[in-house]
Design a protein around this nucleic acid. Structure first.
Length: 280
DNA sequence: TGACACCTGCGT
DNA sequence: ACGCAGGTGTCA
């Protein structure tokens, strides 16, 4: 479900609600949701931990405990993290997978229809290793057009799979890659090393713009995504290419858009606005 | 690089 | 009944 803008929106909504709260207990209703250190050890180890900060890295929500341990949440396709104030009605959803109870009676609930989401408790060094394995944060100042040019020109890969690779650029997913390539006028099968510096500048600007706008509109809700307060995002109407059906007219030039499959991901582009560069 | 696995639900 | 879905990990 969520890409960088959705995860960031959840982080922002949860930040003031979770900060300084202390976990009283954790219930694991679906064991495979918990990776390290395993369901029982996890439920025990989080008791008494208090939340010092909530960060985001790539598509991970990162709860930093005052102990320096780190709880990571990856929502994968259908995960949802929701805060429930003290006195909220009990959970009735059959898709509740993990529930954290705080000492003041409020709760943090992890729902996940498809059960792909993962929660882990990591020691500081383990979290560092995870973060090291991920690529640039596209909204950091360090992610410049020059840096993107180095990344693209150093690899011989198709541009779309490259941008989806979290070890290269962290946080992009299927929606925003298609949107950024559309805005930059680059065919998704273009060869990364053949993209000119001028086009890389356009692509860099498109990535930053697409992600920033989506955050401004609190994410894209297609079906499952909700903020930490259960609200849908407003970005869907701003999508220009993602999700369009094959043959429907391009919003810019009117020629029919194409829908293809790239690495098992549905991919929409306009053959007229997005010419192929290199072999693809 | 691709095929498949992990899962459930929804639209056609 | 079938295909498809905001993701990623692991095989050959």
């Amino acid at each position: 479900m969520p890409e960088l803008p959705e995860v960031e929106t959840i982080r922002r909504t949860l930040d003031p609600l979770l900060r300084d709260r202390t976990i009283a207990s954790a219930d694991v209703l679906w064991e495979r949701t918990i990776g390290r250190p395993g369901p029982e050890a996890f439920a025990h180890a989080v008791i008494g931990q208090s939340i010092a900060a909530i960060d985001r890295r790539a598509k991970f929500i990162v709860l930093r405990f005052s102990s320096a341990d780190v709880l990571t949440v990856h929502l994968r396709m259908t995960g949802e993290l929701r805060f429930a104030p003290c006195g909220s009605p009990p959970e009735e959803s059959p898709h509740l997978r993990v529930m954290f109870q705080f000492t003041d009676g409020s709760q943090l609930r992890f729902h996940d229809t498809r059960k792909f989401g993962r929660i882990e408790l990591l020691a500081p060094a383990e979290y560092e290793a995870l973060s090291q394995s991920l690529g640039s944060e596209p909204l950091d100042d360090a992610f410049s057009a020059e840096r993107l040019a180095k990344i693209l020109h150093a690899r011989r890969r198709m541009i779309k799979p490259l941008l989806l690779d979290q070890a290269v650029v962290a946080g992009l997913g299927n929606i925003y890659v298609d949107e950024a390539l559309f805005r930059a006028g680059i065919h998704p099968l273009s060869h990364s090393s053949a993209i000119s510096d001028d086009l890389v500048v356009r692509l860099h600007a498109a990535i930053v713009e697409v992600l920033s706008e989506a955050i401004d509109h609190r994410g894209t809700t297609l079906r499952d995504y909700r903020s930490g307060l259960g609200e849908a995002g407003e970005n869907r109407t701003r999508l220009r290419i993602y999700g369009r059906r094959d043959g429907t007219p391009c919003e810019v030039c009117g020629s029919p858009v194409r829908r293809i499959v790239v690495n098992q991901r549905g991919t929409v582009y306009c053959p007229s606005c997005q010419p192929l560069i290199g072999d693809g």
